[in-house]
Design a protein around this nucleic acid. Structure first.
Ligand SMILES: [Zn+2]
Ligand SMILES: [Zn+2]
Ligand SMILES: [Zn+2]
Ligand SMILES: [Zn+2]
Lengths: 162, 162
DNA sequence: CTTGACTAGTTATCTTATAACATATTCCTT
DNA sequence: AAGGAATATGTTATAAGATAACTAGTCAAG
């Protein structure tokens, strides 16, 4: 769909991008026997509206507007489900969540966060993960999960900023 | 002092470890003309008491007990100073702070967080940083800051857990 | 139909972080 | 040494993020 993460920062047909991701997520849920209920599905659609991360309360506001519950656990639970099953990621640096661009595929995401436009891309992280494990190995540490996030400027926001 | 991060997870003379780090930090502050005031110095000492990350409110409690202000900004400001000048790091995954083991040296820290004992080590991150930049390059993204954190099990906590 | 697993909603509370303002200290300039 | 700018410390109040604990609806298996 977007194996090398180039989409987020390039102009593209986002309606197709979003629909593709949604269809893909649905197929994965179906295959795994997961219940992509209305709130969960809507939460994912909301995340998929842009290549940016959204706070839980942003998602909550949107859900509430549309007739779902207005209390924090409504959003947190939907987001937790999405993250747990790989439909979304949590971006710790931003206290926020973003739709996963590769649902169903095992991958270590590397997040690239543009500090100017808040754009978010998911770069391939296999090499970074390997380097990290090699760095942890000599200490005898067994890595189970990792979060790798970079803040900087996306191509568009570098213009006139050199 | 601890170039390869092996200290945190190995038994060692921590009093010497702490004093060395403190002395080093003082020398750096002196050299840079930074004011390591009583709150700031005490906050750093508190962080240096263990190889674990502490929440801002934990640090605040300790400071308050010792006669400093009892309001959040007291701790947040001291910690902000320490982070800004490289005496401490912020661990996003934990919403917490830890003393830097290499103050004064330019480095990209890789944090290894033990989920069993809360131990925290700072592994060398040069290779990881390089891999990350190489991953971001093809997207035209200019990396400015990065946070690289891994959760897993330290050597001691792997015993009897295989 | 009833039971048990799961989902979604609520209220209440906790934790983490910052804004805005008042006071005190430091340090440079004269 | 005195004045004044910049820095540092303290306060109150509030914003922002997250979870605990409980209630009630859904739905399929038995
Ligand atoms: Zn898109
Ligand atoms: Zn941008
Ligand atoms: Zn030590
Ligand atoms: Zn451990």
């Amino acid at each position: 769909m977007d194996p090398d993460g180039t989409l987020a920062f390039a102009s593209h047909d986002h309606a197709a991008c979003r629909d593709g991701a949604m269809a893909h997520a649905e197929a994965v849920a179906e295959a795994k026997g997961l219940r992509l209920t209305p709130v969960r599905r809507r939460a994912l659609e909301i995340l998929l509206e842009s290549h940016q991360a959204l706070g839980a309360y942003d998602v909550l506001d949107r859900l509430a507007e549309e007739g779902f519950g207005r209390q924090p656990p409504v959003a947190y639970r939907a987001l937790e489900f999405l993250v747990e099953h790989g439909f979304a990621h949590r971006i710790r640096r931003l206290n926020a969540f973003a739709a996963c661009m590769h649902p169903g595929e095992a991958h270590v995401p590397v997040f690239l966060i543009c500090s100017a436009c808040n754009g978010l891309a998911e770069a391939p992280g296999a090499a970074v993960a390997t380097a990290l494990r090699q760095s942890a190995g000599p200490l005898g540490f067994r890595v189970e999960r990792m979060s790798i996030e970079a803040v900087g400027l996306c191509p568009a926001c570098q213009e006139g900023d050199e």
